[in-house]
Every structure is written in C-alpha cells, then in structure tokens.
Amino acid sequence: MKNKSTSFWLFLAPTLMALLLVVFIPALVGLFYSFTNWDGLSFTNFVGWNNYLSLMSDKDFISAFWFTVKFVVVTVILLNVIGLGLALLVTQKFKGNNFLKTVFFMPNLIGGLILGFIWQFIFTEVFPALANNLGLNFLNGWLTNQATGFWGLVIVTVWQMGGYIMIIYIAYLQNIPDEIIEAAKIDGASAWQRFVNITFPMIAPAFTVCMFLTLSNGFKIYDQNLSLTNGGPYKSTQMLALNIVNTAYTENDFARAEAKAIIFFIIVASIALIQVYYNKKKEVDL
C-alpha cells in the first residue's frame, strides 16, 4: 500500500503545487495584507478592520458593486436564454446548422480586450453613422452615459459568451435520446409542451453549469470593461474588478484593494456555491 500512496502524491503534486503557489498562498498573503497599511512594497503597522470599515463609505466601490450586480442579473438571464435559444436552433435538422454553430462560437475566440475595442468602434463610429443615415436617433451617443454604457457592456458580453454557453447546451441537448422525444410526440405533446416537460428538465445539469459560468464570469468581468468604457463616464460604468485594480494601481492603496478583493471573493464564491447547491438539488439522475 505504501507504493500506492507514493504514486498518489506523485501524480497529485504538480497540480497541488500550482494551486498552492498561485492560488492558496497569494490568497492567504492577500488576506494578511488586507489588515495592514501595505502600499505594494512594505507595510508599517496593522490597522485591524479599518480597511474593511472604510469600504462602507467608499461611494465608488458601492456604486461599482450595484452596477455589477445589475450587470450580472441581466447577463445571466440574457446569456442563458440566448445560449439555449441558439442551441435549440442549431440542433434542428437543416442545412448549414454546423456552419452557424461555428459562426455563433467565433466571438468567443477573440480576446475580451480586443472585443471591447472593436465594439467601442461600433458604438461610437458605426452607430452614429447608422443613426444619421437611417434617422434612428437612439443609436446616437452610445457609451456617453451610464445607461448606454451599461447596455454596451451587456451587448459585448452576451455577444462574446453566447456561443460558448450555446456549445454547453448543445452537448446536453444531443444527449437526449430521440426515442424519448418521439414518445412524447405520440403521447400528444406539442413542440412547446415537449420543451417544457421533457427537454428542459433533461438539460437541467447544463443549466447548473451555465448559470455558474455566467454568474461568476459576470462578476469577474474586467477586460471588456477596461477597453470599452474604462469605467467612464465619471466612473459610472466601473465594475468591481476594475474598481479593485484602480484602487491598487491608480490610487496606490494596495491594502484597501486587498480588502475589496477579499469581499469580492466572498460574494462571488457564496453566490456561486448557493446557486450550484440549489440547482443540483433539482436535477434528476438519468
């Protein structure tokens, strides 16, 4: 048995080392710094809960928090509805469905930063051009206020991640045996009844996975935010991750940034875990 435990640890070691070095140790060090007045290089004394308490009166942080929450709610709904919709579309039998699958997935291959710049061009150059030529006034002035900044971010994120979510739903949709759908047809179910009563419950595990991915991704979004609006105008579209980075590198307040990051981590982790727990309970064993 000794042999077994040696190889057990041997196989585990690389992953364990990587996790320790880049996740656990930095997290613990970060937790430690959040109780100090660390400036990125050194610290002189412990400040207790002061960093955390100061966040309560940090207007930028609080507004970034609510902006992010709003963003997450909207993108989670849109991404899952659109991802599932696209998956249902391309799993139908028609010519070109494989081509469409590729097309819908492609935005996901472009990095978020570049995507942000591309869409910035669309919002600030293409939209006004369209507005002038077609007389569609609502296409004017995008990214110049919080509302259009918000929806701009939503559009970019959904456009980027929709195809990815679609792929996950496709995998689960294709796992449903044809016979079960046929049995439902014979039982007298219309297309909508089949979707609600058969298809949807059977792809519940995909829903758990996609909810988790869209939820955590929504909270952690950074590069699109940076390149599309950079938090502007007047920090009104600043999201949590960007706010934390700015606190650290623009305001050089590393210790407070650490405190924010800890709070951020606790929020994301607990929401994601609660969500997975509840969805798992509803899933069925196939």
């Binding site: 079960i180 014979i186 196939l286």
Partner: peptide, 19 residues
C-alpha cells in the same frame, strides 16, 4: 401529426421519461 392519430406506441429502449 402523431398526436392527432390517436395511437399508442411502445419503443424498443422503453423511452421512459427519466425525470
């Protein structure tokens, strides 16, 4: 459509609704 033909069918792999 199958639902309008008023037939019942038994499949080889049972095709029960697993959930």
């Amino acid at each position: 459509a199958p639902k309008d033909r008023d037939i019942a069918m038994v499949f080889q792999n049972y095709a029960l609704y697993p959930h």
